[in-house]
């Protein structure tokens, strides 16, 4: 009763081209049935994310640990609220990150939970940079 072979195959890695995403923009792709936000962050967003004291976060994590070295402006997170599974809206909320309309959880520009009932940060899916303008998710 676990996922069958076809379902697992449909979950194979996908490649996403980053060139159409301008600074400050984001796109949503689907992988394994889950929505994934790929955000091209502005300098301001990166600075805001890095200036927060990590110990004050409900789910402590540094911004650096959530992005790939040398590609700091790219944030790739699974767009599923860690509270009860709704899809948060990008570029909303007090932290210029994500806002979940269901119960009001707010995430920052690094996808970390800042306020609201969600217990954890937006998860980062497995991905790597195939080239400077292309990533492979999964």
């Amino acid at each position: 009763m676990n996922p069958d072979a076809a379902t697992i195959a449909a979950g194979a890695p996908i490649e996403v081209d980053l060139t159409p995403i301008a600074q400050g923009q984001d796109i949503k792709v689907f992988w394994r049935g889950k929505p994934i936000y790929i955000m091209n962050r502005t300098k301001k967003q990166i600075e805001e994310a890095r200036s927060v004291p990590v110990s004050s976060l409900p789910d402590p994590a540094t911004d650096q640990s959530r992005v790939k070295e040398g590609h700091d402006q790219w944030l790739v997170v699974i767009g599923i609220c860690t509270h009860l599974g709704c899809i948060p809206i990008a570029h909303e909320g007090n932290y210029d990150g994500f806002f979940c309309p269901c119960h009001g959880s707010q995430y920052d520009s690094s996808g970390r939970i800042r306020q609201g009932p969600a217990p954890a940060n937006l998860p980062v899916p497995p991905y790597q940079f195939v080239s400077d303008t292309k990533i492979q998710i999964g």
């Binding site: 009763m1 676990n2 996922p3 394994r32 049935g33």
Partner: peptide, 13 residues
Amino acid sequence: VTLLWGGYSVGNP
């Protein structure tokens, strides 16, 4: 949850 879903999210399975 994976057993309930039969996949990686709520879907056809």
